[in-house]
């Protein structure tokens, strides 16, 4: 299963980015193969509609879950219709690697 996490940088030591649409970077983590991919967010500075455009990026990677600090209204309804689970973590200092560890823990 693939999970998308919003990140403030492109290393596992980076912290979770609280913004979904305008995060620095998306992390696509595959729980089966343990592979991590970092995708810089091209919509970071989009004038409008960064949220939906970012949904498009992560959804096209086939993720089933997405982890971020907050989701906007438009983003929520899009993920809902795509049946992708949203997980909100309200701890900005959480590191990407810590989140991945949680996902791996049985």
């Amino acid at each position: 299963m693939k999970v998308a996490i919003t990140s403030t940088g492109n290393t596992p030591e980076s912290e979770l980015d609280q913004r979904f649409g305008r995060c620095e970077c998306f992390v696509i983590y595959d729980t089966e193969t343990n592979s991590i991919e970092f995708i810089p967010n091209p919509n970071k500075d989009a004038l409008e509609g960064a949220g939906p455009a970012s949904v498009q990026i992560v959804a096209s990677r086939g993720v089933e879950k997405v982890i971020s600090g907050e989701f906007g209204i438009k983003v929520k309804s899009l993920f809902d219709s795509l049946k992708i689970q949203m997980i909100v973590i309200k701890e900005p200092e959480k590191k990407i690697i810590e989140i991945i560890d949680m996902l791996n823990k049985q």
Binding site: K65, L82, K83, I84, Q85, I89, K90, M102, L103
Partner: peptide, 22 residues
């Protein structure tokens, strides 16, 4: 346990555990 929030887009089956910390 981990204080995260999550929704349940599958809906067909109920939620049994936290998707993050189980």
């Amino acid at each position: 346990n981990c204080c995260c929030y999550f929704n349940n887009p599958g809906k067909m089956d109920g939620i049994k555990e936290c998707p993050l910390c189980r």
